[in-house]
Amino acid sequence: MHYLLSVLLGIIEGLTEFLPVSSTAHLLIAEKLMAFQDPGGNFTVMIQLGAILAVVILYFAKLFKAVVTLPTSAESRRFAISVLVAFFPAVIIGVVAKKSHLIDFLFDNIPVICGALIVGGVALWAVDKYAKPPVHHDSAKLDLKTSLIIGLFQCLAIIPGMSRSGSTLIGAMVCKVDKKAGAEFSFFLAIPTMLGAFVVDFAESHKLLTSDQYSSIAIGFVVAFLAALLVIKPFISFVQKRGYGFFALWRVVVGVAGLVWWFGFAHA
């Protein structure tokens, strides 16, 4: 039965990782509803790498070109540096939150998660509606200041429910980056961010994981990868045409429903 739950949770992760709705919030709420046991949040963290792998596959040509031309291309070096600059704040906040056990507290706090969904949804709607016209149209050519600001916004995702994708997309719009370029930069930034989270989590817990937990993680990883492959390109097309209003509304609805469930039924 828990393998079926791993499949369902993998689908949720893959479909929501790159949408500005917080895959972590959806996973944690779903795990509570399904009574899925995830000690230390290992399953939740590790299957996210499957969704990130989908970005590497879909953008392989662009990423491979950037890597192989680093010694000879100033544009490739600029792109790589911009991603690293955006990634750096997450390293600092991640280390501090991990050492203070803040992450453990937040990951188990459904009211905080649901509240973050609602607050982030309102912020996403407001920024999407009132953002100034974009001046940046290429995700590989963002200046370092813009990249750093987007990276600082990503740090908001330390609170489950704020959404790493949602926070970076808000930061991109604040910096006048158009929706396609902002979404793509968010995808690229996810690669070192989620890879780093995976490595840290695995290093700390791999000796404690049972073969059964490894099996669940493997299933969730593969399913998340396949689901993410299906959603990334349609997501970019959708937001270019319609913006983020639907996702903002979805966040608020899920957040309110989660609070109603938690305070009205979860402990009944």
Rank of each mutant, 00 (worst) to 15 (best):
Y3V: 11
L5C: 03
V7Q: 08
L9G: 09
G10A: 03
I12D: 07
E13Q: 15
L15F: 02
T24A: 12
T24R: 06
H26S: 09
L28G: 03
E31N: 05
G41P: 00
F43Y: 14
V45A: 13
A51S: 13
I52S: 00
I52D: 00
A54I: 02
V55E: 00
K62F: 07
V67Y: 08
L70I: 14
S73P: 07
S76V: 08
L84G: 12
F87D: 09
F87Q: 09
P89R: 07
I93C: 07
A97T: 14
S100N: 11
H101Y: 08
D104C: 04
F105V: 14
P111G: 04
L117Y: 06
I118F: 02
I118L: 05
G121M: 07
L124T: 10
W125I: 11
K129D: 00
A131I: 05
A131P: 04
P134N: 06
S139A: 15
S139L: 06
A140H: 12
D143N: 14
L144H: 10
S147N: 07
S147M: 08
G151L: 03
G151V: 01
L152E: 01
C155L: 08
I158Y: 08
G161P: 00
M162S: 13
S163L: 11
R164Q: 03
T168Y: 07
G171H: 08
A172G: 15
V174M: 06
C175I: 02
K176W: 01
V177S: 10
K180H: 12
E184V: 14
E184K: 14
A190T: 09
A190N: 06
A197K: 08
V199H: 07
V200G: 06
A203S: 13
A203K: 11
A203L: 15
E204L: 14
S205K: 14
H206L: 01
L209A: 05
T210N: 10
S211N: 14
S211R: 12
Q213G: 04
Y214R: 03
Y214T: 04
G220L: 03
V222P: 00
V223P: 02
A224C: 03
L230W: 03
S237M: 10
S237F: 10
R242W: 13
F247N: 00
A248H: 04
V254N: 07
A257G: 05
G258Y: 02
L259W: 10
W261H: 09
W261Y: 15
F265V: 14
A268R: 13
